[in-house]
């Protein structure tokens, strides 16, 4: 069952990720990206990572992409016109892509096969939100606090700056 779900959502995710690039209309691309995020969230859920899956939907599909769509509509972007095929650009693109694929196969091959080489989250039997919270606030407390303050300051900064320009 889980394997079937994995294949369904991976195929959905990769297909919609390809659609983001292939569509000419920016709104179509944006909505395909939303679908990509939703399928990715579903993959997280099949791995029992409910918290990360739901945060994926909340932050990326629910907030970031709404802003993208907002900007696309506000700027009234029209469908991209089909350009003449640029041979040099195409060759460059294929070279970069090929290099990337070769690199990633080397990296994957050189990884140890067993899963215990990767640090996993210690499961305590509570919800995964609890586990992530405990890990973040005990082992990674300082970086977490710094990121939190940074984000808070930037949010307050935006509110403050927009308020000043109104005067």
């Amino acid at each position: 069952m889980l394997t079937i779900l994995f294949w369904v959502f991976s195929v959905l995710m990769l297909a919609s990720a390809a659609a983001v690039v292939l569509f000419r209309n920016p709104v179509n691309s944006a909505m395909s990206l939303v679908l990509t995020f939703l399928a990715l969230a579903a993959l997280f859920v099949t791995l029992d990572a409910f918290f990360i899956g739901v945060i994926q939907v909340l932050v990326y599909a629910g907030a970031v992409m709404v802003l993208f769509l907002f900007i696309i509509m506000l700027l009234d972007l029209k469908a991209e016109t089909r350009r003449r095929l640029n041979i040099a650009a195409l060759a460059g693109g294929i070279a970069v892509l090929g290099g990337f694929v070769v690199l990633i196969t080397h990296v994957v091959k050189s990884l140890p096969a067993s899963a215990d080489h990767f640090p996993t989250l210690a499961r305590t039997g509570y919800s995964d939100a609890y586990d992530i919270g405990m890990t973040l606030f005990s082992d990674f407390n300082l970086p977490f606090q710094i990121i939190g303050v940074l984000l808070l300051v930037s949010t307050i900064g935006v509110v403050f700056l927009s308020r000043r320009s109104l005067r």
Binding site: F50, V54, V57, L58, G62, V66, L69, F70, M73
Partner: peptide, 24 residues
């Protein structure tokens, strides 16, 4: 769900797409 409230926020934040796409 152990993350019930986050589910509520995540799903209801998707509701805006219907309205935005209808308008566009």
């Amino acid at each position: 769900l152990d993350i019930g409230v986050l589910w509520v926020f995540a799903v209801s934040s998707l509701g805006v797409y219907g309205i935005v796409l209808a308008g566009w």
